[in-house]
Amino acid sequence: MYQFVTGPLAWVAFTVFFVGIIVRIVLYIRGLDWQLDRVAYRPHLKYGIKGALRSIFFWLVPFGTQSWRYYKGMTILVFVFHIGLIFTPIFLKGHNIILEERWGFSFPTISERTADLMTIAVIISGFILLLRRIAFPEVRILTTAYDVLIWAIAMAPFITGFVAYHQMGGNYQFWLILHILSGEIMLMAIPFTKLSHFILFFMSRMQLGMDFGIKRGGMKNKGFAW
């Protein structure tokens, strides 16, 4: 079982993930329409690129936009959650050992202590984000079962990973396989679900940045004050 989930299934998961996000990028860009979107993308590409980069950059910086500054608590939650979610698995020692073994390359690693803290941070911020959905009427009204499912898909690898690493669940092998499976499910879910915001965040921000950069003022001022 371990051989299967770290072997063929891992191949499948990574293939679906990488091909999937490339397809999403291509489909997104092909679906842009200068007249329907009312943005002259091509004739003013320079302004468009400037607007796109600004639009992505400011939103990647904690408190970099007026919205991030307005919702301070949410901003901390979102950044802690996402930084942990993306970087912990990439730089985790255990993962890189397997990478090296199976595919002959690896990334620099973070200490196990750091990884542990980041995992706890993901789990805690994740639960607060879920509580927020229940506690605040303006978020509750938006929340659907699908949102909770997506949340579970994203959280599962961290919870199972944490349990396995600390040998909390009794059967180490069971939790390890569950952890690997849940990670692969998440990777494969990215292109097909709302988790596609992994890449579509950048596409969408790029588009709106181009909109403001080209049409809505970017050619007459320094750029939108995100």
Partner: peptide
């Protein structure tokens, strides 16, 4: 007329309430 821009907007909304 509903192309990738709006389709994506409707699809990826995280329902965060911001």
């Amino acid at each position: 007329t509903l192309k990738s821009r709006m389709k994506t907007w409707l699809e990826i909304c995280a329902h965060c309430g911001m």
